[in-house]
Amino acid sequence: MNVLRSCVKTIILSNGVRSVNHEGPRYIKRWVAPTQKILTKLKKSLGEQPEPKRNTFLEWNRSAEIYAFNERLSESFNTEKLEQAFTHKSYLIQEEQRQKEMEIETPVLAIQDNAELIRKGEKLTSEIVQTYLVQVLPEASEDIIISLHDYLLSEEILAKAAFHIGTKDIILTEAIAQKTLADTFLALVAALAESVDVNHTANFVRDFLIVILAEKDLTEVWNPAHPVELLNDVLRKQNRSPAEPRLIAQAGKNTLEVAYNVALYCDKEFLGSGFGQTIQEAKNTAAMNVLSRIFGLLDSNKPIKFNKTINLSS
């Protein structure tokens, strides 16, 4: 045992198991605060600086970025089409200007801009969105489909979709704005349609654009100003008499917490009810309730499916 102990001792001494946790001084040096103050002052005096562009950094490889973009989305874009979809007209104009400044008489640029793709993409995206919504919301009226379609194709949502698939740094343009991002998404849709086919593109649009509806209250997007008149129109089309509102309950009249409960009846049949702080408000809520029940948009309805495929013949 003693031998073993001495052996261990010699090993420890020879290898030198000394503390490696060297700690520096546990205070902040006296020069740090004044230096930081001066630096902050200088920064403030410069004013607001533009955000540094990622594609002007030293560590930037455009072809690797384009390749990774394709792989990330597990898509099969044609690389040339993809390059074209990312090139905006403003970039080409800027490049030409630059070449002229460098005294090149006839500036030649080997790339095309995406104006054509944007035009095609807008048409195609609109068609895909409309077809898909009609398929997943079979009971919804044309009015609802149009408002959801307009919401999805609004610049804000398109820009958000484009941003979240990582196009922001790859786009070639003069200055990036919401419009540029939205246009890029449309151009990408057209580029994918030309690279593969329309039905494959429909899956792309579904997975990266229509999906936003999953976390959205649909009656927030489709919000008619006069729901009672709309409900009466719907009932008239079904050859039924107009809805008749009845006050079925009220509580806390002449107080701050007043609540009215209005039910709508048609041919002595209960359609639905709603609440409100005034009778008019309760009537509108009731009409919205009935309409969303008719069109299948109630909170308790099954959510929209996002795994359907659509067939576009073109």
Partner: peptide, 18 residues
């Protein structure tokens, strides 16, 4: 979840690493 991730298809959210 960022923009419907996991409802459509999975996209690795890390885009570049230095």
């Amino acid at each position: 979840a960022p923009f419907g991730l996991g409802i459509g298809r999975y996209v690795c959210q890390l885009q570049r690493i230095t």
